[in-house]
Amino acid sequence: MNKGLMCLALATAMAAATATGAYAQKKKLQKRENYEFTFDLPRYVEELKTELTYPLAWGNSPIGDFGEWKKAARAKVLECMMTPPRRAASFDMKVVGEERRDGYTARKLMFNVNGYSRVTAYLLVPDGKGPFPAINALHDHGGHLYIGKEKMIRPFDVDSAVIKDADQWAANLYEGQYVGDYLARHGYVVFSIDAPMWGERGREEGVDRSKYDIIAGNMMMLGRDLSAFMTYDDMSSTDFLATLPEVDKDRIGCMGCSMGAYRAWMLSALSDKVRAGAAVCWMTTTDVQMSVKDKKREYGGFANCIPGLRQYLDYPHIASLACPKPMLFVNGTKDHLFPIDGVEKSFAIMHDVWKSQGADDKLATEIWQVPHSCGRAIQERVLRFFDSELKNGGGNTAR
């Protein structure tokens, strides 16, 4: 673990211990002798997991034609994502800022991502004659909602507190290198927006991680799903990216770390505009993710919660909807969020799907000796993957 990550982990642990201790002294929790939930899971969690048979997964489903299976499975995912946001009449893009950088230009845009939200985005455009291959850079969760797109692309024309926060985040999780700027220097248009609840799409009252779950619950009361809105926006922003004259619409990829990785394989599975995806440090199976015995549970709250979907498909089954597209998955042996047995199970499930379609050479699954992070070596691996699939004769893979 590098020094920055060690400091971050230590600071986080100390802050959590201090906060927990202070709260315990302030208010002792009331307890009853009998209880039904422990470690934020039901005591019968193992029984519930045995009842998850994933009947719509490829190989479990009675549908034998892969194209028909993809159509049915994708439709079920979208159904479970509940009612989508209303589409905007137009994207109505406006450039509101620009900055020259070494080998590329950074632009700040505003556009209508859906019928309710006009959002700010960063767009990096390489020097030279386009159109260029493009990457939708999807930011992480990290329990840190003050910044979003600024985790992926170095910000400008913002408050100094935002720049300082973004620089610190890049130092801790990305080894001091903004992955979006790194890709732009190597010839890619790079685009990034805030997910709902992050950055400029947060709460009027200020950042409070505990409010995410409350807001997600309120959205469900309105017949909508907050996590699904994030994915719908990622799909819409990719549609927008494909309209830009600087972008080769047949060579669009996406990438992210942590929640950004979840967003990357979800987007790859659901958008035909995406031709290749890279997901760093987010893949597991539900049986490993939820365990009182192993002290594992879902830490992201509602950030990847799609109601009812687990009755049909597990995470790797959903990611397999991207087959036969080129996909890169990287996970770490020192990643405390994703135990390696869950990662290996997921990778095996996905390889079975890609193999069934004669496309196993298009699926790269790698386990590195790293913690939950996307350092410079991994960023270089992501670049080589995209160079192979989107630059050097790539971009025409069947969808």
Rank of each mutant, 00 (worst) to 15 (best):
T333K: 14
T38G: 12
K345S: 05
P155T: 05
P55H: 04
R310I: 15
K391W: 03
C323N: 06
V280Q: 01
V288Q: 06
K164P: 01
E200H: 06
P371M: 00
L270Y: 08
V125R: 05
C305Q: 11
G277S: 02
E204Y: 10
R185C: 11
T105H: 06
V292E: 03
E389D: 10
K334Y: 11
Q369G: 14
S356T: 10
Q357K: 11
D157G: 12
Q357T: 04
R101V: 08
D250K: 15
R107L: 13
A88K: 02
P316T: 03
T284N: 15
T83K: 15
I378M: 15
W58I: 04
T365S: 10
A398D: 11
N112V: 07
G4N: 04
L41P: 00
Y23F: 05
G4Y: 07
K149N: 03
Y35L: 14
V158A: 11
F240P: 01
R154T: 04
E246W: 03
D335A: 09
H317L: 05
R384C: 13
A9T: 11
P316R: 08
D194S: 12
W69G: 00
K362V: 01
M14I: 13
E99Y: 06
G375K: 00
N396S: 15
L390F: 12
V125E: 14
G223V: 04
G97P: 09
Q357V: 03
P62I: 02
G21I: 02
S320Y: 03
A184S: 14
C323F: 12
C323E: 02
R154W: 05
Q30S: 06
V113Q: 01
H336E: 13
I147G: 10
S356I: 07
A364Q: 13
T284C: 11
F191N: 11
N112R: 14
T286G: 05
E51H: 13
Q369W: 08
L5T: 00
L328R: 00
D233N: 04
L173E: 06
A171R: 10
K293S: 06
L222T: 11
D102H: 13
K334E: 12
M290N: 06
D361Y: 10
Y212H: 10
A261L: 10
Y122N: 04
F385Q: 03
L52Y: 10
V353F: 13
S210Q: 09
A72M: 05
K70A: 15
V207H: 15
G332R: 07
T20Q: 08
